[in-house]
């Protein structure tokens, strides 16, 4: 029994062209999975299906052995949270405090407990000095951190990041990745939807989507050994692999550089 079981999942908006086709995916508790894909590969649709914002055409999704269907969405959403791409469009509250509280309010958490949790999780994402600030005075990275705190406060065990860093500047992006790494270390299952290969390299496992189908699925190191997998799904390889490819079949010194680069990029 895996933690997340996606079985034979297909989805289509119109009934004709399938956005997702026969997706089978098992994710264990505590895994860090990057779902990679080009624009239109269906990766964001997969995220929306997993949290019950869209209904599958066929197939099933089970989270912690609960089947996702209309009656169970409320229970499922206690276990799985999502951080979307646009920091502004997911900020519901008038202040940081209100926004962190929003999900807990929906779960009928008593006020005293909410205040405690807000304090705790705001500190955790480094936003405790901003509790009474309005979203207009926050940066994109800060808003994303508030979104994470809001989800953590709901005691979710799985967090999906749907291109959550794509609207941030490089500094805020690196900072957010650090927070994600911390969450992973605490045992939260991370599913990162992205088209950025360097970002995906932080995950343990890569799932590559191509035209609505799973093109490749495996441990990061294993997939990096097969560069053709990336090339055939119009994804750029990580810089180190590209350089390594250029050095292939050359003399021993260059091989040393290759090993060094590999170590530098992935074994840190």
């Amino acid at each position: 029994m895996s933690y997340i079981e996606i079985e034979d999942l297909s989805f289509s908006y119109t009934g004709k062209r399938k956005i997702l086709e026969n997706i089978n995916l098992l994710i264990e508790q505590g895994e860090w999975v990057a779902v990679l894909g080009h624009n239109g590969s269906g990766k964001s649709t997969l995220a929306k299906l997993m949290i019950g914002l869209l209904d599958p055409m066929s197939g099933s999704i089970k989270i912690d052995s609960t089947l996702l269907e209309e009656e169970t969405t409320y229970e499922i959403r206690k276990k799985i949270g999502i951080v979307f791409q646009n920091p502004d469009n997911q900020f519901v509250g008038v202040t940081v405090k209100d926004d962190i509280a929003f999900g807990m309010e929906n779960l009928l958490v008593p006020r005293a407990e909410m205040l405690e949790k807000i304090d705790f999780f705001a500190r955790k994402v480094g936003m405790s000095d901003f509790l009474d600030k309005e979203p207009a005075s926050l940066s994109g990275g800060q808003k994303q951190r508030v979104a994470i705190a809001g989800i953590l406060a709901m005691q979710t065990k799985i967090i999906i990041f749907d291109e959550a860093t794509s609207m941030l500047d490089p500094y805020a992006r690196a900072e957010l990745m650090d927070y994600i790494r911390e969450l992973h270390d605490e045992g939260i299952t991370i599913i990162m939807i992205t088209h950025d290969i360097e970002e995906a390299m932080l995950a343990d496992r890569l799932v590559i989507l191509k035209e609505g189908k799973i093109h490749a699925d495996g441990a990061k190191k294993q997939l990096l050994g097969q560069p053709e997998v990336f090339e055939t799904s119009s994804l750029e390889l990580p810089m180190a692999i590209r350089i390594a490819g250029m050095l292939e079949n050359n003399d021993d010194k260059l091989k040393a550089v290759k090993e060094y680069l590999w170590e530098f990029s992935f074994d840190r």
Binding site: R77, G81, F84, N86, Q90, V92, F102, G103, N106, M154
Partner: peptide, 10 residues
């Protein structure tokens, strides 16, 4: 998008 975000937070 806001509706999605609100719904996904139950």
């Amino acid at each position: 998008e806001l509706a999605d975000a609100m719904e996904s937070r139950n």
